[in-house]
Simulated scan of single mutants.
Amino acid sequence: MANLNPDLLEALRRAATDAANDGIKFYVNSGWRSPAYQNQLLREAVAKYGSEKEAARWVATAATSLHVKGEAVDIGHPDAAVWLSKNGAEYGLCQIYRNEPWHYELRPEAVDHGCPRMYADPTQDPRMRN
């Protein structure tokens, strides 16, 4: 959990504690990533999907990745992601992309107003444009 935004980490800890009370165990599959690792993931996605355009639906560049900035986590185990999709706004934790039910970011305003509308995938997110 090194290099994560402290507010994100605190929200995750609170959510994980409450999820555990419901019998759900959280696993953070991916938190902060180095730029080099993010670039490696992008190269692998290009090889897998056949183009940079298609890979961009799944993997951001190091310059735009919220993981590189310490502002995003990927939650493991489907039951944990389901729990967080139902309860995350209470902690300010929101799923951002419809195609990535594991990807969560801190949106403190969600506590009072609910999570923002999801993007279909990262290519629709204006933050992902260089």
Results as ranks from 00 to 15, higher is better:
54 E>H: 02
67 H>D: 05
123 T>N: 08
31 G>A: 04
45 A>Q: 08
34 S>Y: 08
117 R>C: 07
18 D>T: 08
74 D>R: 00
116 P>A: 03
8 L>I: 03
88 G>M: 03
11 A>H: 00
109 E>W: 08
105 E>Y: 01
20 A>Q: 14
93 L>F: 01
126 P>H: 03
112 D>V: 05
121 D>V: 09
44 E>L: 13
64 T>M: 01
13 R>W: 12
107 R>V: 15
95 Q>T: 02
43 R>N: 12
66 L>C: 09
97 Y>A: 00
128 M>L: 13
19 A>I: 08
60 A>Q: 12
53 K>I: 12
117 R>A: 15
46 V>L: 07
77 H>E: 10
64 T>E: 03
39 N>F: 01
68 V>L: 06
43 R>W: 09
66 L>S: 12
94 C>Q: 04
37 Y>R: 08
46 V>Y: 00
27 Y>P: 00
29 N>R: 06
93 L>S: 07
24 I>Y: 03
72 A>Q: 06
36 A>R: 10
128 M>A: 11
83 W>E: 04
102 W>V: 01
93 L>Y: 00
39 N>S: 15
15 A>Y: 04
87 N>M: 09
15 A>H: 01
111 V>R: 07
114 G>C: 03
110 A>N: 11
15 A>F: 01
127 R>D: 05
89 A>N: 07
52 E>F: 09
24 I>Q: 07
94 C>P: 02
79 D>N: 14
59 V>C: 05
126 P>W: 00
83 W>P: 04
56 A>Y: 03
97 Y>L: 04
111 V>E: 05
129 R>G: 11
2 A>C: 08
3 N>D: 15
70 G>F: 08
73 V>K: 02
11 A>W: 02
50 G>Q: 11
45 A>T: 02
28 V>G: 09
18 D>R: 06
103 H>P: 06
57 R>M: 10
58 W>D: 00
9 L>F: 15
112 D>S: 12
29 N>C: 11
83 W>H: 05
54 E>M: 06
101 P>Y: 10
20 A>V: 08
17 T>Y: 15
33 R>E: 13
70 G>Y: 06
14 R>I: 08
82 V>P: 00
22 D>V: 07
25 K>R: 13
9 L>T: 11
102 W>G: 03
44 E>V: 02
1 M>A: 13
